[in-house]
């Protein structure tokens, strides 16, 4: 077990070096634990030797993202096969997930046949329920009408909603609609008002999980990797002790801790994208076939109530 907090200038349990170390491991399978505000990080190889009962949370769920069903080009001509592999990993978990979150880009081109294939494939996940938020690829040509019909039953506006599970408040947001020229992802006034109202009656001790497709923190605006009005949304969540923000869109793991908020992006199950600024564009990263599965994967999240513990484990299809 490696304790990595060596400097703690703001008395918040997080130092820069420790955080960077956590980030560096993130892509290769890392467990990041926040216990009582202290960020700890362990390699997955260490986790295997730890007492599994201590690793179990009160609530365990899995995030998958960016399945892009319908994409058929290099580096992954068969995205349905890699989604199936991700499902096999979910079905092999020690603690079956209470539910699965899909953080968008279900399809590549919003085609009915693509959504059909996705639905058919996801049927084999051993879980109670799958929650969705749309990616920009799911709302092409029809302003998201088909998406909402299939995946947004009971949601509001463009498809946002919230629900509670074991004392944790989950909020699914939509930031891929009505995008403005030159801008980034957008939540919009109506959704922000709803969000403010949605969390108003919650106790500040309630753990909050927010999930949306495009990152709600500015990762690389030059590539559109951010959301214009995310600061407004986060301002409504300031008073809460534990806020976790789960996103997709950038097809790679990135993590940041800022005060009470942990931001995390998941891998895609379809194809990797380049690290920010390392390629002419954020288009699909073409990698050799034997490297592909090391860059695709899923995220497993555990909550331990009372200890304010959030554990996020990313694992690739290769592990």
């Amino acid at each position: 077990m490696g304790k990595i907090i060596t400097e703690n200038l703001n008395n918040d349990g997080v130092d820069r070096r420790g955080f960077l170390k956590c980030m560096a491991w993130a892509g290769t399978g890392t467990l990041c634990l926040i216990q009582g505000g202290i960020l700890k990080s362990f390699a997955l190889s260490e986790v295997a030797n730890m007492d599994q009962s201590k690793m179990k949370g009160d609530l365990s769920f899995v995030q998958i993202s960016d399945s892009h069903i319908g994409f058929d080009k290099a580096a992954n001509p068969d995205v349905t096969a890699t989604l199936r592999e991700a499902i096999a990993k979910i079905n092999g978990l020690n603690q079956p997930p209470a539910f699965v979150l899909h953080t968008g880009d279900l399809s590549h081109l919003s085609k009915e046949s693509e959504f059909d294939t996705l639905d058919q494939t996801l049927k084999s996940i051993h879980t109670e329920k799958i929650f969705y938020v749309p990616g920009e690829h799911d709302v092409l040509n029809d302003n998201g009408e088909q998406y909402r019909e299939r995946y947004g039953k009971g949601s509001l506006g463009d498809g946002w909603y919230s629900f509670d599970q074991k004392g944790v408040h989950f909020i699914g947001l939509v930031n891929v609609m009505n995008l403005k020229a030159g801008g980034l992802g957008s939540l919009g006034k109506e959704q922000l008002e709803w969000l403010e109202h949605d969390v108003k009656s919650l106790k500040s001790s309630s753990p909050i999980v927010v999930f949306a497709h495009i990152p709600l923190w500015s990762i690389y605006p030059e590539w559109g990797w951010g959301t214009d009005d995310s600061a407004q949304a986060l301002s409504y969540l300031k008073r809460f002790g534990t806020v976790s923000v789960l996103n997709g869109h950038i097809h790679q793991v990135m993590q940041k801790v800022e005060g009470n908020v942990t931001f995390h992006t998941a891998m895609s199950t379809a194809f990797p994208q380049p690290q920010p600024g390392t390629a002419p564009s954020p288009g699909p990263m073409k990698v050799p076939t034997d490297k592909l599965r090391g860059l695709l994967g899923l995220t497993n999240v555990n909550f331990v109530r009372g200890k304010h513990t959030l554990a996020v484990v990313d694992s690739t299809l290769q592990e």
Partner: peptide, 11 residues
């Protein structure tokens, strides 16, 4: 003026 409504940075 025009843009890509999927990737609005493209103007």
């Amino acid at each position: 003026e025009y843009f890509c409504s999927i990737h609005p940075k493209m103007t």
